[in-house]
Design a protein around this nucleic acid. Structure first.
Lengths: 340, 340
DNA sequence: TTAGGTTACTATAACGTTTTCGTGTTTATA
DNA sequence: TATAAACACGAAAACGTTATAGTAACCTAA
């Protein structure tokens, strides 16, 4: 690669000092007009751009935001990144993305790598494994130094930092309430294992709605799906119980879509025999047959808010108290819960 | 934020020079064992990490790969990023992501921002607007200096750089051939406008297959969809022609899924009345009813190969001649083309 | 004529790191 | 005992930039 042109190169060309060149390019009138214009023309011609590393080092500011997420091939997370990117750009920041792949180990490495001075702050969604372990020491190492950190989606109360989370309880509550309102009583819940916070919270919302409406939850219809085992096989179990459900609430779109497929294979007519609601993260809900009623999570907004919080923190515009932004999910009603 | 600990801090603490500290931490035996161990212990205790900006500046190497893509909320692109990230990580690189939003202007800005020294090389998928304009001067500014650059998915022969592309012609050919093999003759094509290279190429593959099988293409059944207008309205036109199609080949998953929905609304039974094939980029194909036969694009592999090519270029392990890797798409047959 | 001011530049430090080259002191060898 | 080698450290340059603090040379006004 051809060596980059620097102030030094230009200075040599004109046999002046580096400071002269620097000032000329900043249009300082400390430099005589003639020389100034010549230097500017030269720099322009050779497409001089100040080396950003040098600037970052000097200014002790990178204008880069680090983002650590569990995975990127996931509609929700990519939507959040989109939101982060847009807001960050507006404020003159760039975005650096690292993946933890849900691994504690990799999360630790990523945090360590990114906090070597290469980013001004971090936005993180905690890895599953970390949540399971409950070990947040790698985060604490940052927060105790006051390093700007914002957690999103998967939060924890054990850390002193800004957070943006979804009101999962309310989301599940709304969904369950909707199913009850269209007359369903035997509602099956497809959730995750308990250590996954979203699964646990959505279960709480579901139970709360049932309780508020005076309906008993049939524990045989609560299924904890393990993502690393065969999904079809596990979800199939819904239809093997003594009590047949008349509705299904799934904590994500995939579980919901699979449940619908299986129900149809069993000859059920949807939504008449079984109504289904999922939590959307992608485009699947729109294109299933019937299209799937779902709880919308507003990932883009979440990303924007996370970026906003972080940048305020970086630029010391944030209050000393940490902020917990809670986003209310909304219900998007589609065919899977619309009765004739 | 508490000021970071540096070599200087440590040096002051022990009243030695910075070089001594640096050497001690690198376990150099130029430094006496006792002092060396004390310094190491101190640094360890205060969690010293060398400032990466300083290292990057000194070594003239960032170990960061810049990625510029049109959008991130898109299964194909996020899959590619995943591939890039994995391979980059294996080789000790990090990834910085910027979005062009299909805009020429933003692409130019992004390239300029990233090539200020903050990345060692770039992986780019060209924005639509740039393709339409045909203006690649911002890329040429890089290639003429030998800046490491790899293009993926949306390539161009007008640039001297490595590329990883999909054999779109072959993909469409395979798809059309499959439709013909199951007995279809009146095949409708749902494609994009011509300036979008993938659309144009897939159209060529389609025509080639038809020609090879001695079937005339009915031009009334070739639809160029405009993404900024209403998709349902445009796709609806398929069913308004004199000749009713018995199959549809769509250049992406969304068009295909919408076409299926509309066909079903018109009372067609799928796949018997109309068979449908799309190009997959997401999970939609799996969950439609019927599930959708589609051409798989291997985004993850593409990302890995792009990263591989770029890193070889950065580390001068690449041949002087530029490499064009072509990935062969494969056909994933699902219900939408399986006849009883 | 000379102090004071302007003009047009240069020198230097600083950001944090590594590395080459010195240098003074101690120890080993002839 | 003289000399070389080994030891333990420091100085300085380099990466590229900016900002502060000089400093010559010239001009102006009393």
């Amino acid at each position: 690669m051809r060596p980059k042109i620097t102030l030094k190169t230009i200075a040599k060309e004109f046999e002046v000092s580096i400071s002269t060149v620097s000032k000329a390019l900043k249009n300082s009138n400390e430099i005589g007009e003639e020389l100034r214009e010549k230097i500017k023309a030269f720099a322009d011609y050779y497409n001089y751009k100040p080396n950003s590393l040098a600037l970052q080092l000097r200014n002790q500011k990178t204008s880069v935001i680090g983002v650590v997420i569990p995975e990127i091939v996931h509609h929700f997370f990519s939507t959040v990144i989109d939101g982060i990117e847009v807001r960050a750009n507006e404020k003159g920041y760039n975005v650096m993305v690292c993946l933890s792949n849900e691994s504690y180990e990799k999360e630790v490495t990523n945090l360590s790598l990114l906090t070597n001075g290469s980013v001004d702050g971090l936005i993180v969604s905690v890895a599953r494994e970390t949540q399971k372990k409950g070990d947040y020491n790698h985060f604490k190492a940052l927060t105790k130094d006051g390093f700007p950190l914002v957690l999103f989606d998967r939060g924890t109360d054990s850390l002193e930092c800004d957070q943006v989370i979804i009101d999962d309880i309310a989301g599940a509550y709304k969904a369950a309430k909707h199913l009850i309102e269209i007359g369903r009583r035997k509602i099956a819940l497809l959730t995750t294992e308990d250590f996954i916070s979203v699964g646990a919270l959505r279960k709480i919302g579901f139970r709360k709605a049932m309780q508020d409406c005076g309906i008993d939850v049939n524990e045989d219809l609560v299924f904890k799906i393990n993502d690393s085992k065969d999904l079809y096989e596990q979800i199939e179990q819904i239809f093997q119980q003594d009590e047949k459900p008349d509705a299904i609430l799934a904590v994500n779109e995939i579980y919901a879509a699979i449940a619908m497929k299986i129900a149809q294979e069993h000859g059920y007519v949807l939504p008449d025999d079984i109504a289904v609601i999922g939590f959307t993260s992608g485009l699947i809900s729109e294109f299933t047959t019937p299209s799937l009623t779902s709880v919308e999570q507003h990932g883009f907004l979440m990303g924007q808010q996370a970026a906003e919080l972080l940048i305020n923190r970086i630029e010391h515009k944030a209050p000393s108290k940490y902020i917990k932004e809670v986003i209310s999910p909304t219900l998007k009603i589609r065919e899977s819960t619309i009765l004739e």
